[in-house]
């Protein structure tokens, strides 16, 4: 469950409703395709939520918002970008335990064989670099101080969102807008992922209206996902139905790989020890003068 992915999934139902335009559906299909087929690559890195939101400008979930509400939603999106995003990067990519136990494992499991060894590491370095630049601090290192600072910002941001949401169903009354998608996309991964270091999650869970808001959207717009995740709570990948698809070829691939590796090891061992000498012998046999052999065989014949 990573922010980018969920946001697109959340955009799908939210944005699809107000229009039936071919171009949009096309676009939307492309997005879906992109995610369901290429989930193994890096959806987060490729993802530019604002670009998508503005490219869908004409087909707007915000069309019934007043101008002031539109302004508010822009402001709250900025708040998320500035306050919550660095903490999310930290939470998923920099926090050593979370990264090793969940993020890296998840990506490694969903990537084809040779890539899974170095791509997650490269992505992590990229995110770390990004965090450094966002904070404007070259010598930034994962640690208690940084974690406290980022999580305090994020907690404040969540508090503000919770206050703004109040007891409403969505941020602007009864119908969803792009701000709802944005907030949901960033918070749902925090709420639903099972991380060893779950401080952000604890804080989010303590804000009842905000966590209800997330589960509510999950229930309304992702009925299949939320039902399956509640029916089989142990599933760690975000989309169990896709998980099954992924697992079969992965298993085959793994089996094939292990067989190949074993074969390779045997062959090289054999080459290093036995086969080389056999080849040598054969060569010797070939190089040996033919008459000696005939003599030998004649002797044997004679003996016999």
């Amino acid at each position: 469950m990573f922010p980018g992915q969920l946001l697109i999934f959340s955009l799908r139902p939210v944005l699809q409703r107000p229009l039936q335009d071919k171009h949009f559906l096309c676009n939307n299909e492309a997005l879906k395709h992109d995610l369901t087929c290429n989930r193994a690559h890096h959806p987060v890195l490729r993802f530019q939520p604002n670009a998508i939101l503005s490219s869908l400008h004409k087909y707007n979930a915000d069309y019934d918002l007043s101008a002031k509400e539109g302004a508010d939603s822009l402001a709250f999106i900025s708040l998320l970008e500035e306050r919550l995003k660095p903490a999310l990067i930290y939470n998923f990519w920099v926090e050593p335990k979370n990264y090793v136990d969940v993020t890296r494992r998840w990506y490694a499991e969903h990537m084809p064989f040779p890539l899974n060894f170095f791509l997650p590491g490269r992505m992590q370095r990229g995110q770390m670099e990004k965090l450094r630049l966002l904070r404007g601090d070259e010598s930034l290192e994962a640690g208690e101080e940084l974690e406290k600072e980022l999580y305090r910002d994020a907690a404040e941001c969540m508090n503000l969102l919770s206050q703004r949401l109040g007891s409403h169903k969505f941020f602007f009354g009864d119908s969803p807008s792009s701000l709802d998608a944005y907030v949901f996309g960033h918070l749902a991964p925090v709420l639903k992922s099972k991380l060893p270091n779950g401080k952000l999650q604890q804080h989010l869970k303590s804000l009842d209206n905000l966590s209800n808001f997330c589960s509510n959207i999950l229930l309304l717009y992702f009925p299949r996902d939320s039902r399956e995740s509640s029916s089989q709570k142990t599933s760690s990948p975000p989309h169990p139905e896709g998980g099954d698809f992924d697992h079969v070829p992965n298993k085959r691939k793994k089996q094939l790989m292990s067989v190949l590796v074993a074969l390779g090891a045997m062959l090289s061992y054999a080459l290093l020890t036995g086969i080389v000498s056999i080849q040598h012998l054969q060569q010797e046999a070939l190089e040996a003068p033919p008459d000696l052999q005939t003599i030998g065989s004649q002797d044997e014949d004679g003996d016999g």
């Binding site: 402001a75 900025s78 708040l79 500035e82 404040e156 503000l160 206050q163 703004r164 109040g166």
Partner: peptide, 16 residues
């Protein structure tokens, strides 16, 4: 509370 949340959000909008 709501106004304070909005104020902070708009400040981030200006910064952002």
């Amino acid at each position: 509370d709501v106004q304070r949340a909005e104020m902070k959000a708009y400040m981030e909008l200006v910064n952002n």
